[in-house]
């Protein structure tokens, strides 16, 4: 993969690579992520032609076998000219999960980053509008974290009831 050589020349030591089936992955080092992530993605976009952010999603690796870092954000990039794909995984940890925002590179990242913030509580620094997108604004939890129960804490039934006579 020529783009991996470009990356290795510029950001040696900041990432490792792995492949599984047809997915090529670039795994960022958690320590260096805040400084390196944005330049690396910029290099991928501008020098290697990965101009299409196909997907941006979060993962919570709590209790995952052999996992060392808790939160992960996956950037799935596609080269629209050649159809190549690469997945960049950036890690971050409690108590303040934070990552740099990529809205300046891909405008489509706006809502996807808001969704990750809503579901996992990972804040994106430099995002223009960091608020909840799917859950109500007064909701306090982050539902897709592994320590949040499937059925919630009873928020779903916390509403008044309208009877026949009142309506």
């Amino acid at each position: 993969m020529p783009f991996l050589d470009t990356l290795k020349a510029k950001f040696a030591g900041a990432f490792t690579t792995s492949t599984f089936r047809d997915n090529t992955r670039v795994l960022m080092d958690a320590e260096k992520t805040p400084d390196v992530l944005l330049p690396l993605l910029k290099c991928l976009k501008e020098e290697c032609g990965f101009d299409f952010l196909a997907e941006l999603g979060g993962i919570d690796y709590l209790n995952y076998p052999h996992a060392t870092d808790r939160y992960c954000v996956v950037y799935g990039l596609t080269n629209t000219a050649t159809g190549e794909r690469v997945f960049v995984k950036a890690f971050t940890n409690d108590p303040d999960p934070e990552l740099p925002s990529v809205v300046e590179l891909w405008k489509g990242a706006d809502w996807m980053e808001r969704e990750v913030y809503d579901m996992y509580g990972v804040r994106f620094l430099g995002h223009p509008d960091m608020r909840r997108i799917l859950m109500p604004t007064e909701f306090t939890g982050h539902p897709l974290r592994k320590d949040y129960p499937l059925r919630g804490y009873g928020e779903r039934h916390n509403f008044p009831t309208v009877t026949r006579a009142e309506s």
């Binding site: 939890g141 539902p143 779903r156 009831t161 026949r164 309506s167």
Partner: peptide, 15 residues
């Protein structure tokens, strides 16, 4: 959908 967000029957809230 027995999940955190979905109301388990609207009859809890309206007749």
């Amino acid at each position: 959908f027995d999940t955190y967000a979905v109301v388990q029957g609207i009859d809890r809230f309206i007749p």
